[in-house]
Design a protein around this nucleic acid. Sequence first.
DNA 1: TTGACAAATGCAACCTCGTTGCAATATAAT
DNA 2: ATTATATTGCAACGAGGTTGCATTTGTCAA
Lengths: 145, 145
Amino acid sequence: MRQETLAALKDKGFRLTKIRKFIVEIFYSSEAVPISAPELRTRLLAQNVKANKTTVYRELDFLSDQGIIVEINAGDGKKRYELQRHGHHHHILCLRCSAVECVTIENCALEDQLNSVDLKNFKVTGHALNFFGLCEGCRPYTECR
Amino acid sequence: MRQETLAALKDKGFRLTKIRKFIVEIFYSSEAVPISAPELRTRLLAQNVKANKTTVYRELDFLSDQGIIVEINAGDGKKRYELQRHGHHHHILCLRCSAVECVTIENCALEDQLNSVDLKNFKVTGHALNFFGLCEGCRPYTECR
DNA sequence: TTGACAAATGCAACCTCGTTGCAATATAAT
DNA sequence: ATTATATTGCAACGAGGTTGCATTTGTCAA
Ligand SMILES: [Mn+2]
Ligand SMILES: [Mn+2]
Ligand SMILES: [Zn+2]
Ligand SMILES: [Zn+2]
């Protein structure tokens, strides 16, 4: 999959730089956990790949424009990204440690009704359902920080 | 309502400053539209009330701590606040102009099932359902900016 | 293999939103 | 009017994110 993605980019005239290849690899190997820009930088650094923060932000924009990743909003103020191919689903955020995981609601009656409806004179094009609570490690704590 | 809220604060030993009274008034007169910190500052200024941004942020924290307002997340990265008494409901965000309105889903089958469930080993304590699309004024445009 | 050209990168400077420590001010009870 | 302390303003800081511009690098063709 990673190879096809990279090949497709090259076909379009984009270059397969070291940083780009590492980033694509990181997204493919991070299935159920969306990644923020700062986290991505940290993960690159952990592999001894130094990337300026401007470069990281530009690469996230680029991969989004190319439809390879999508921005998700888990309910805290931070943008995270994940592979677009994962399709529509939802997210859960730990209020204490900010961990985020992807969740899929089974038999979600709303899904079919949520989109394409008119709400408050808005033309609705999508929705996001975020859960929050305490992750396994944070359950012992009351909440936050 | 505003008067009771202010009186209750005074009973607890807090002071009814000019800025605090204006802010409470603004929230009570802004029923279906949550307000961000920068917006709140602007609205104060429009009434010739100059408030340092630190003061505005501190007042939002204070009113949240007092249970008078709650922070809501409409899906863009920005924190907004609204009266707590409005109770649980959802929000819709315009992808072009960032306008936010409150929405209540009628016959929402999910509501009863969404909370108090275990997801991914998380202890779920709440959820947020955000819609996005184009507001009435932005409908003519394709999207964004 | 070597150039050439455009894509990608790094850097510095800037922006918005939000926070902190501390000194100055204002509310409200006496 | 005094006083205690809640509140405010200010300056400085920090994270996350963006922009303009000069430099580097990937790609391809000679
Ligand atoms: Mn996801
Ligand atoms: Mn609302
Ligand atoms: Zn946690
Ligand atoms: Zn709009």
